[in-house]
Simulated assay, not measured.
Amino acid sequence: MLVVGILASVAVPSFLGSRNNAYDKEAQNSINLAMKAALQSYQNQGDFSDASSAQCGDSSALAADLQKLEPNVDMVAAATASTSSRVVSVTAKQTWNSNNELLGCQAFFATALSSSGSCWVARFTVEGKFFNAGSTAPIVMAPALNTQNVAITTWTLLQANGAAFAQIRARSNAADADNTQSLAGTQAACNARNQSTGVVASSQYYAAPSEFYSSWRDASGAAGGAGN
């Protein structure tokens, strides 16, 4: 019986870890499909605005446009939280250059909630240095990780356009009681509006610009997910 108990103590965490990884990959794949549809729309529109009203932001029309291009996942408007790995909350966002000139609707955000409890976030920026007019917090990407998931120390936060990825997950941190994240809070915050504000400081249920990585793998390896 002792041997059985030892084997179970090893096998159960391994099984749960594998299951959660599969859940996370499903959410990531849904976001990838949403981003592919958004880029197809960008080619047609010249930006990420919706086709009917040319609105850039929390538009249900944008979700409807992307739904037509990608019927295999459920697209919802920015204020609506994702409720599963197959439901993707989407929004478009304006960007500004270093001279504080508006470049238009040049950024796209998407979120999906994994059954593991993690909220996965992706952004795609075609051009621009800032997400807000007059901002001093540039669009950046966290340092890359090596194969041991350790930050490459020679890298610093880099201004980066293109695709970037982040993770928010529920956890408790006894060392910092103000920075704990409940499962319910993570689920409620898993919407594109919350995750596209472009604020520099990280908080409990928000992936700051500096907490985005160049790949899903690096976002997965970041200690604790966003909000640390």
Score class of each variant (00 low, 15 high):
residue 221 G to I: 03
residue 161 N to E: 12
residue 151 A to L: 09
residue 94 Q to S: 06
residue 123 R to H: 06
residue 164 A to T: 08
residue 203 S to D: 04
residue 119 C to T: 07
residue 147 T to H: 13
residue 91 T to S: 15
residue 206 Y to T: 10
residue 91 T to G: 11
residue 213 Y to S: 08
residue 119 C to G: 06
residue 140 V to L: 08
residue 13 P to H: 06
residue 108 F to V: 10
residue 76 V to F: 01
residue 192 A to I: 01
residue 28 Q to Y: 07
residue 206 Y to W: 06
residue 35 M to Q: 10
residue 210 S to L: 05
residue 100 N to G: 14
residue 196 S to C: 03
residue 37 A to T: 00
residue 95 T to F: 09
residue 178 D to E: 10
residue 125 T to V: 15
residue 46 G to D: 09
residue 49 S to L: 07
residue 156 T to E: 13
residue 175 A to T: 08
residue 63 A to Y: 02
residue 190 C to S: 03
residue 18 S to K: 12
residue 5 G to F: 15
residue 121 V to Q: 00
residue 96 W to D: 08
residue 213 Y to W: 09
residue 117 G to H: 01
residue 35 M to E: 07
residue 99 N to S: 15
residue 164 A to Y: 02
residue 129 K to L: 07
residue 136 T to L: 12
residue 139 I to G: 08
residue 74 D to W: 02
residue 150 V to P: 02
residue 133 A to V: 14
residue 72 N to L: 06
residue 50 D to A: 03
residue 161 N to Y: 06
residue 172 S to E: 13
residue 135 S to H: 13
residue 109 F to S: 07
residue 91 T to H: 12
residue 50 D to P: 05
residue 82 S to Y: 02
residue 77 A to M: 10
residue 223 A to M: 07
residue 31 I to D: 11
residue 217 R to T: 15
residue 211 E to N: 00
residue 142 A to M: 12
